[in-house]
Design a protein around this nucleic acid. Structure first.
Length: 348
DNA sequence: CAGGCGTGGGA
DNA sequence: TTCCCAAGCCT
């Protein structure tokens, strides 16, 4: 048997039953593919069920408010996926009559859809012979063929795409693509791959040369930036606070947060209340206490956010327009959501 | 085009 | 604890 036949044979016996595999509705497949970008099935599953339940069609998604979509996405991370998802839903509903594009060429034009996702939808839903190349495919192919080209170099990206395309079983592209990804996720795993029971054991270069742990090769490690966040959690006598939307380029675009003072290091109460931002925000008398005695280190993949939550109580504040009882409607980062949970818990 | 973008789980 | 990294995409 050749490579693709072995793979598909393995898949027929070992594939996972996943909700988005029940139909070839491109809307459902698209939802699942966007959610699973850089995300484990176990983490994405609940979100997929919630989205398909709340938004059964692309029109339902298109008609929702962006903040509603972000709220439902809360906790899944990489929020640009949710914004692009909503943008593309509106485009399909309004400009394309709700008809999902059916070719790789058209799919890749859509915001949030790149080479991987276009190939996945085109092959799974429309049987177009385009090979997917995701993290699983990089791992399986680099090990099987013993390829040491870095998977995140431009040379590597091209090389693996070409190789994947030559291996594709074009008579059943969708099945083949899902087979190689499931095989990577379940069998040819990053750690402790199941080489002893592998159907490729007699032809895998990495297994033969004991290179499994070295492959795939990835170059460059990301640098982590340390940042110091001071959130000012306002509580007025009439139970109101300030939440504002994060705009611009950085993290958490479109999500809401308490007024933020970012500093170069950990600061104490004195430094906080003498800061320009604080004085501007609170001209009148306030009572301030630090909620978390030790800073909370919220770790993003590329930033460590050393965070202090300052509870600021004041009688009245015109800018505080958000009722505490309505905070849960707002999409917030996990860092804020975790704080809110603890805070509400303690005050009850 | 290299860097930026979240979160949670496992070793 | 720390590190890696999981069905990538955008600019």
């Amino acid at each position: 048997m050749n490579f693709s036949n072995i793979l598909i044979y393995w898949y027929l016996q070992n594939n996972r039953e996943l909700p988005w595999r029940k139909s070839k509705n491109p809307y459902f497949v698209w939802l699942s593919e966007i959610m699973l970008q850089q995300t484990r099935v176990a983490q994405g599953m609940a979100y997929y069920l919630k989205f398909t339940d709340t938004f059964p069609t692309v029109f339902d998604l298109a008609n929702a408010e962006e903040s509603t979509v972000l709220k439902m996405w809360q906790g899944l991370g990489y929020y640009s996926r949710a914004r692009n998802l909503h943008f593309t839903a509106k485009h399909i509903a309004n400009d394309l009559n709700g008809v999902f594009p059916s070719t790789y060429k058209e799919l890749i034009k859509l915001k949030g859809i790149g080479d991987y996702t276009a190939s996945a939808i085109a092959s799974i839903c429309f049987n177009e012979p385009n090979a997917v190349v995701d993290g699983n495919v990089y791992r399986v192919l680099s090990r099987y063929f013993g390829i040491k080209t870095a998977i995140n170099s431009s040379a590597g990206i091209k090389e693996f795409k070409v190789l994947a395309q030559t291996l594709l079983d074009t008579s059943q592209s969708g099945t083949y693509n899902q087979a190689i990804m499931d095989f990577g996720a379940l069998h040819c795993k990053p750690q402790n791959p199941l080489c002893e029971t592998c159907p490729f054991a007699d032809s895998c270069v990495a297994f033969e040369k004991n290179l499994t742990k070295e492959l795939p090769v990835k170059e460059k490690k990301i640098k982590v930036r340390n940042r110091y966040f001071n959130f000012m959690v306002i509580k007025t006598a009439d139970e109101k606070t300030i939440l504002s939307e994060r705009k611009g380029k950085g993290i958490w675009q479109g999500l809401y947060q308490f007024p933020l003072l970012e500093s170069d290091t950990i600061i104490d109460k004195e430094e906080l209340i003498t800061s320009e931002e604080f004085i501007k925000l609170f001209p009148d008398e306030t009572t301030i206490s630090l909620f978390n005695k030790k800073e909370i280190v919220h770790k993003l993949s590329h930033q460590h956010l050393n965070t202090q939550f300052w509870i600021v109580e004041t009688v009245t504040l015109p800018k505080a327009t958000v009722k505490w009882t309505e905070i849960k409607q707002y999409p917030v980062p996990v860092l804020i959501a975790n704080f809110l949970e603890e805070y509400q818990l303690k005050s009850n």
